[in-house]
Design a protein around this nucleic acid. Structure first.
Lengths: 150, 150
DNA sequence: TAATTTTGCATCGTGAACGATATAAATCGA
DNA sequence: TCGATTTATATCGTTCACGATGCAAAATTA
């Protein structure tokens, strides 16, 4: 019993880590044709909801550091999905704007969420069971986020 | 409503991805003193359960590719936690063995799981609620794993 | 047994993640 | 108003994660 808690099978974090990796993998067939990685797709979701945001707002919504988001945006600028312009009131800010290509991609991406749901449901049944995790995950995230600011 | 499903707040995968990242972050204060990263800690868990395993078995248990695990093990060999030796029956295999330092670290790591639990519970209450996700996560992982082999 | 295929691991290239650090602009305080 | 601090990004170095590829040993098959 001494080391029981060190067993892999008792680790929640390992499951989160694995579930996240594999789920991201399941997006591959849908994102590859669009030339997007999963984190880039998340940035697109943020920008489709609201265009013209500073780097910091995007990072904040994704709970990522700006030093993760900056190079990500640089790559996305290179592939022509976004533009990055100097902020007007605050010239330290870089405002991220969708290009025509970026805006149009929304239509192509429209069905990705339902495709993913369908695939997951097909493979292990209950969508409801998965949806039931959402409030718990949100609480977990909320708690860990506060821990960060200490 | 046309693009409702593309909203970030409706994404389960984003929550898994974030929860996994933040939880891994919560391990930092405990793993840093041991000189371990979280994936390296996972390898240690596997080896503490059973020493002397080929690379492939470790990768399989962690659901990682060998091309992820190999460099990870190379770094761990450099820090003196493990040794990698040629397999005897099958000389293609590399057998991973804990060093004295690696074995002794188990005692220092013994309390990490309960520390993490305590921290998470302190921050957002219910441990039970989190434990309830385990069967669902396992089903999700199982389903996605099978999808991989197609 | 010789040729073919499979398997186990390694290497390489690309894209995250993130700590540490840098830099310029904005804000604050004396 | 001027120096100090904070803020918004960017850069750098290290470690994953993984697709593609390479290579030698084993297993399979002709």
């Amino acid at each position: 019993m001494k080391y029981e808690q060190l067993k892999l099978e008792n680790q929640v974090c390992f499951r989160l880590y694995t579930a996240a990796r594999l789920t991201m993998g399941a997006y591959h067939p849908y994102l590859d044709p669009l030339g997007l990685t999963y984190p880039q797709y998340l940035v697109m979701l943020v920008l489709w909801e609201q265009d013209k945001q500073p780097v910091n707002d995007i990072a904040h919504k994704l709970l990522l550091e700006t030093n993760t988001v900056t190079p990500l945006l640089q790559r996305m600028e290179k592939t022509g999905l976004i533009k990055r312009t100097q902020g007007k009131e605050d010239s330290r800010q870089r405002i991220v704007t969708l290009t025509k290509k970026g805006i149009e991609m929304r239509e192509q991406a429209k069905h990705i969420p339902e495709c993913l749901s369908a695939e997951i449901i097909k493979n292990e049944g209950s969508a409801e069971e998965i949806m039931q995790m959402i409030p718990t995950l949100d609480k977990l995230i909320q708690g860990l986020k506060q821990q960060l600011n200490k």
